[in-house]
Nucleic acid binder design. Structure first.
Lengths: 134, 134
DNA sequence: CGGAATCCACCACGATACTG
DNA sequence: CAGTATCGTGGTGGATTCCG
């Protein structure tokens, strides 16, 4: 505990981000990951096509990519059943499940979506006044 | 509490997303918004350049864009002081401040980053076995 | 200082095949 | 069924320049 530990340093924070949660956001909230994790968490194990249908607007290619990434990050578990026809199942991992309270929090914040919508209307209503001074 | 509330409907979920938190994610976790909100929430009101320096890797163009978006969504308040030289200050709004617990949750989940890293190492270690069957 | 305007590069995503 | 391969594009972000 001598003073040869980090010398207070500049407050410039990390070189990368001024924000400690950025890495988590990158992992958990990159495109399509939330619908996938939500579905797996909420409705349990799914086959590929089931996910595809459940999410509907995702293409198989992108679904594959995202599932790979989630599997790699340890948030999703992939199980291959060597049958004919082949069957693959995806389920949320324990690590993935640990995100549940977070998701619940997020869902809870949804009650504020109306305020956001209203803020947008207000903003758009007074913004045509070009120049945006004041 | 009669059964004339939402008639069960199809479970096909929303047409857009199979996931109710997607809208919130779009608003709160789009690119750069977290560092900005985090800084404003954590360190209070900032001038444009201060934010620029604090975040460091962001370009003024993108910073402007994101600040506009956040202002429009009611998460950030912009105050213009007509002086010479001009001075503009950004601070988090009450609505933005309501995200604080969420951010704290996220920050708390950071303890799992090591597990993610380990999962990646494991995955990469066994993946060179091409074919990815099993 | 606090931006706006312009130009450009990249790649994530979508669409459309095809396969074990 | 559960993907992979290939191609094309648009939209986002970076770099640069200029302005009130």
């Amino acid at each position: 505990m001598t003073n040869d530990t980090i010398p207070a340093a500049r407050i410039d924070v990390a070189p990368e981000e001024a924000c400690p949660i950025t890495p988590v956001v990158g992992i958990v909230f990159s495109r399509w990951t939330t619908p996938i994790l939500w579905v797996l968490n909420e409705y349990g194990r799914h086959r590929f096509v089931e996910l595809e249908r459940r999410i509907a607007t995702i293409t198989p290619k992108v679904l594959t990519e995202r599932l790979r990434q989630l599997e790699r990050d340890g948030l999703v578990v992939r199980t291959y059943h060597p049958e004919v026809p082949p069957r693959v199942e995806y389920e949320i991992s324990e690590l993935g499940r640990s995100l549940a309270p977070l998701f619940a929090s997020l869902a809870g914040w949804s009650i504020n979506l109306g305020k956001v919508e209203q803020a947008r209307l207000d903003y758009d209503a007074r913004e045509p006044v070009r120049g945006r001074r004041t």
